[in-house]
């Protein structure tokens, strides 16, 4: 690992001023669960790290009936997994978090750090996108809010500017008659994801008709992929097995996966079909009861 200068920010304001000063050579360090490996492998060699992990002001989970959920960017994965508030209102997040890396990583790693590392196989992004998440980005100059679905631009790349810090993840209140299901597929139980998907289904109250749907995949494109056409095929229809199967096929055709040591591109597409089908069915059944 190369030497670097190290600053431990004591407030968000200080962090913003430090990163605006060092934006060309510096990196923000949160939990570091990806960053430190990258440093060790010399895949990146910033000359300065600004450590924000200790900022209590970005560590919170708050809910308001009208405005919805706000998660501080430095909230750990484990805190989200164990939050009774989240279990009650956004259970899919809690369930999804269980499959994020290992307990040790979830204890130290933060939700904000995870999103900013923009790994295309990351667990949280698909579920957060289907839930309609927005990100609050702050800098010394001010702040802006970006929908999560517009956040990622390429492998390990986001719209975040070099002087910006992700401060908060915002979710609207849970939609009525809606259920969200997260499913992942790997060779070993807790292995590297070959494909994962999050599916949200909203039904017309008291019917079998899908009012709205959203399907987001990971590990099948450089960024979390929203399979819009597949979701469109569900909307306004009674979700029979055939309808779901057709939508799942469409989802597969919308993906553009690559081949790696874990699976070929062709196989990933096959798994997309199975996962979207299974997740949609499950979300649909739950939505009817919601």
């Amino acid at each position: 690992m190369k030497d670097f200068e190290y600053f431990s920010a004591t407030s968000l304001q200080e962090a913003c001023s430090l990163i605006s000063q060092y934006k060309d050579v510096g990196k923000i360090l949160a939990g570091g669960q990806s960053l430190i490996t990258l440093l060790r492998q010399k895949l990146i060699s910033p000359t300065c790290l600004i450590d924000i992990k200790g900022l209590k002001e970005l560590d919170y989970i708050e809910f308001d009936k009208k405005s919805g959920l706000r998660i501080g960017a430095l909230t750990t994965h484990r805190a989200i997994e164990k939050s009774s508030l989240i279990q009650e209102k956004y259970n899919v997040l809690s369930e999804m978090e269980k499959s994020v890396a290992s307990v040790q990583t979830r204890n130290w790693g933060t939700i904000g750090g995870n999103l900013c590392s923009a790994d295309p196989i990351g667990d949280p992004a698909p579920s957060l996108i289907v839930l309609g998440a927005k990100l609050k980005l702050v800098s010394a100059k001010g702040e802006r809010v970006v929908p999560l679905e517009d956040f990622f631009t390429d492998y390990f790349t986001t719209v975040i500017e070099p002087d910006e810090i992700l401060a908060e993840i915002q979710l609207p209140p849970p939609a009525a008659n809606t259920a969200v299901e997260y499913m992942k597929f790997a060779t070993i139980e807790a292995g590297i994801k070959i494909v994962s998907t999050s599916v949200a289904v909203t039904v017309e109250a008291g019917t079998d008709v899908c009012k709205d749907a959203k399907i987001v995949m990971s590990a099948v494109a450089p960024i979390p992929l929203i399979t819009k056409k597949a979701a469109e095929m569900l909307k306004g229809k009674k979700l029979t097995d055939d309808v779901i199967e057709e939508a799942a096929k469409m989802a597969a055709s919308e993906t553009d996966p690559t081949t790696d040591v874990h699976a070929s591109a062709e196989y990933r597409k096959e798994i997309v079909k199975v996962l979207v089908k299974r997740a949609t069915k499950k979300a649909f059944e739950k939505a009817k009861k919601a």
Binding site: Y6, L29, G32, Q33, S34, I36, T37, R40, Q41, L49, D51, R78, A101, S102, V103, Q104, T105, N107, W108
Partner: peptide, 22 residues
């Protein structure tokens, strides 16, 4: 590379991997 857990220690009551914490 943060994948085996052999370096697990407890920091403020939480298990963490010491190889991936500065």
């Amino acid at each position: 590379d943060n994948s085996c857990g052999a370096c697990t220690v407890i920091v403020n009551k939480m298990a963490v991997k010491a190889c991936s914490v500065l």
